Simulated scan of single mutants.
Amino acid sequence: MSKKLQKLIAIVGPTASGKTDLAFALAKKFNGYIICADSRTIYKEMNIGTAKPFASRMAHETSPSPLLLKERGANDSRTGKIEGIEHYGLDLIAPTEYFSAAQFKEYAESIIDMPLLPCRDRVNPVSTKHCSIIPFLVGGTGLYISAVVDNLSFPDAPPNNNFRKEKEVLSIDTLVNDLLKKDPDAQDVVDLKNKRRVIRALECIEHTGTAFSRHYTQNPQKYDVLLLGVKRDRKELYDRINTRVDEIMKQGFLEEFELLYTTYRCAVPGMTGIGYRQFCLWKQGKLSLEQAIEKFKQGDRNLAKRQMTWFKRDNRIHWINNTQQASCLIEPFLSSF
């Protein structure tokens, strides 16, 4: 008899679509824990601008300080609880570091494959009654999701900081043209609007001497996966994005940015994210504050479009609007667990 695969529930969708709220509700209902699959919330110290769960859930407090968020993030994120739900995938690296999809896959699998006993010890030393056993992989970074869900293999190419610095000064159009000249099939596996992803693909080609797309392979499935996608119509989604950026500003993003800018300036990987890079332009005198906020919103809206393009290609995703619809799919999925 073949061995049953570990159940895994993935919740995907564009930024600001409501994935986090849905994941909290479902993890509480189905005794689960959450692994965030987000290429921005992996950064320490970057809490408000990346809309980390613990930051958004402190929004009801009076003017939460970025320093307070930083302290709580260090204590409550990587292996801690938020509203009673175990959370992983937050605060993994410093803003000066890079983190690849291959590294995320290794990290996520180390959590999902963790034996029950350590889970019992972590949650309740006496009993497994309240132990979280259903992993929820939640996020909008499609490559992170696919790395785990599809058990992808990646090129064995270590980071080359000198190569990255050389490429970082080039325009995205120049980089894409170079990539497609060397590997035409890369357009099927690389987000060509994401400069970091394009540079990584070129870096792998430089190191291996072969096409990046040839190394990007799918292996036998490791987990029994239910894929859920949060559905929003475009106008509603864009309204949610605009509102969220306004809330981020109220929560103290400007203060958080100033602290980060003082420490790191703008050349480090973490500061290239949406919001932070627009405020770098403001700091450099290239945008007014009002323009930086609007560019922040526009950046998130453009990201949402790219994310929907990525996820719409996957016909395994069940698109849902609310917790009830999700529960109706999860209950039979878990019935054989």
Rank of each mutant, 00 (worst) to 15 (best):
S2L: 11
K7T: 06
L8D: 00
L8M: 02
V12Y: 02
V12E: 02
P14N: 07
T15F: 06
S17L: 09
G18I: 04
K19V: 04
T20V: 07
A23I: 05
F24L: 12
L26Y: 08
A27P: 03
K29C: 01
N31V: 03
G32Q: 02
S39P: 05
K44C: 12
K44N: 14
P53H: 06
A55N: 06
R72H: 09
G73W: 01
G73I: 00
D76Q: 11
D76V: 08
S77K: 00
K81W: 04
G84V: 08
G84T: 09
G84Q: 10
E86I: 01
Y88F: 15
Y88G: 12
Y88D: 08
L92H: 04
L92D: 06
A94M: 13
F99L: 06
F99P: 00
Y107H: 03
P115W: 04
P118G: 02
C119F: 06
R120F: 10
R120K: 15
D121K: 13
N124E: 13
P125G: 14
S127M: 09
T128D: 15
T128V: 13
I134T: 11
I134K: 02
P135C: 10
G142Q: 05
D150P: 00
P158M: 11
N161D: 08
K165N: 14
K165G: 12
E166S: 14
N177Y: 01
N177S: 05
Q187A: 06
V189A: 01
K193R: 13
N194D: 14
K195W: 01
K195Q: 11
K195G: 08
V198L: 07
T208H: 08
T210C: 06
T210A: 09
A211I: 08
H215E: 10
H215Q: 12
P220F: 06
Q221M: 13
K222G: 05
V225M: 03
L227H: 06
L227C: 06
D233H: 13
K235D: 13
E236Y: 01
E236Q: 11
R240G: 03
R240V: 03
E247G: 12
I248M: 12
M249E: 07
G252Y: 01
F253T: 00
L254Y: 03
E255Y: 02
F257R: 01
T262M: 13
T263E: 13
T263A: 15
Y264V: 05
A267S: 10
A267Q: 14
V268F: 07
M271K: 03
G273Y: 03
I274N: 05
Y276P: 00
Q278N: 05
Q278V: 00
C280A: 02
K283Q: 14
Q284Y: 10
I293L: 05
I293C: 02
E294G: 07
F296H: 14
Q298D: 10
K305Q: 10
R306E: 14
Q307T: 14
T309V: 14
W310Y: 15
R313E: 15
R316D: 12
H318C: 09
T323P: 00
T323G: 00
P332L: 10
S335G: 04
S336K: 15
S336Y: 11
